[in-house]
């Protein structure tokens, strides 16, 4: 299998993720613009103009090009399985120079920045190994401003669904304009603390407007979205009708004593790309 083709595909996907907003997000922003007035319109027009300028100039749509995050769904028989981490690290180094990306990896204790977006555990890779011989690599580069608005609440199970709703809505409102709304609110319910956070982040891979397959979860998503938009926080936290473009919820079973709720806030620059490789080595970026 051709390693070079995969490496090039990964670099191309990193570039495309940084410079081209997915169509579902652009459409959602355009729909939001039609609902807004005054400041909301000024801000959304600036966002849409910015998205266009980034695409046309092939430059990052936001100066915070994020921590490079990859979700790998690979078949156990995928021939390059053992080489994926090395290839991804190399692609991140190349893309940092070529796109270019902002060097965003800082040593928390010693200080210092290697300057190539790699470091201990970074790029961050989540692995899901299944049966088969193909591989999907999802890219989710995410900025620090919105990531700082992530939250975890270990609710007492007695707080119930009401408690979940209040936590999510109150947190989104408290964040105001800091995470660059309108974006997507990812919510993970159940599991332990780490699983709730992981599910919240993985939920962001789902395109805007796609509801959870389980009706109960889907209805919760719809309700949370309406309530959040009733808050009036608005675009960039400057007031208005649209605070979130969507809410995505994922659910795991919980321990009888725990009701963890994880929340991961994604900004309007909801950047996503996917690299798919089949067993024959054909690489596609979508």
């Amino acid at each position: 299998m051709n390693e070079q083709a995969l490496l090039e595909g990964l670099v191309e996907a990193i570039r495309a993720a940084a410079t081209e907003l997915p169509t579902d997000v652009t459409r959602a922003l355009e729909a939001a613009r039609n609902k807004e007035e005054a400041t909301g319109v000024v801000q959304l027009d600036a966002i849409l103009e910015n998205v266009k300028a980034a695409r046309e100039g092939s430059v990052p749509m936001c100066q915070d090009t994020g921590i490079q995050t990859f979700v790998i769904r690979a078949g156990a028989d995928f021939p390059l399985l053992g080489k994926l981490r090395g290839l991804i690290e190399e692609a991140v180094r190349l893309a940092t120079r070529e796109v270019p990306l902002r060097p965003n990896t800082v040593d928390p204790l010693r200080g210092g920045n290697p300057g190539d977006n790699t470091g201990r555990f970074i790029p961050y890779i989540l692995w899901e190994i299944e049966s088969g011989n193909g591989c999907l690599i999802h890219l989710l580069p995410k900025g620090g401003g919105s990531e700082n608005c992530s939250a975890l609440r270990m609710l007492p199970p007695g707080a119930g669904v009401k408690g979940i709703k209040r936590f999510v809505i109150d947190h989104v409102v408290a964040c105001g304009g800091k995470p660059c709304p309108p974006g997507v609110i990812g919510v993970g319910i159940g599991g332990g603390a780490d699983l709730a956070m992981k599910l919240a982040k993985l939920s962001l891979l789902r395109p805007i407007g796609v509801r959870h397959k389980d009706d109960v979860v889907a209805n919760l998503e719809i309700e949370l979205l309406s309530r959040i938009n009733e808050s009036g926080v608005g675009v960039m936290g400057l007031g208005g009708r649209v605070t979130a473009l969507d809410v995505h919820v994922e659910v795991a079973h919980r321990h009888p004593a725990s009701l963890p709720v994880g929340l991961v806030y994604q900004c309007w620059a909801d950047r996503r790309k996917t690299v798919s490789i089949n067993a024959a080595g054909h690489v596609e970026v979508t």
Binding site: A46, A53, G145, M236, L238, C267, W268
Partner: peptide, 11 residues
């Protein structure tokens, strides 16, 4: 307030 994230527009 300048639109958060509008890095290309600013550049």
């Amino acid at each position: 307030h300048f639109t958060g994230g509008a890095g290309a527009l600013a550049a």
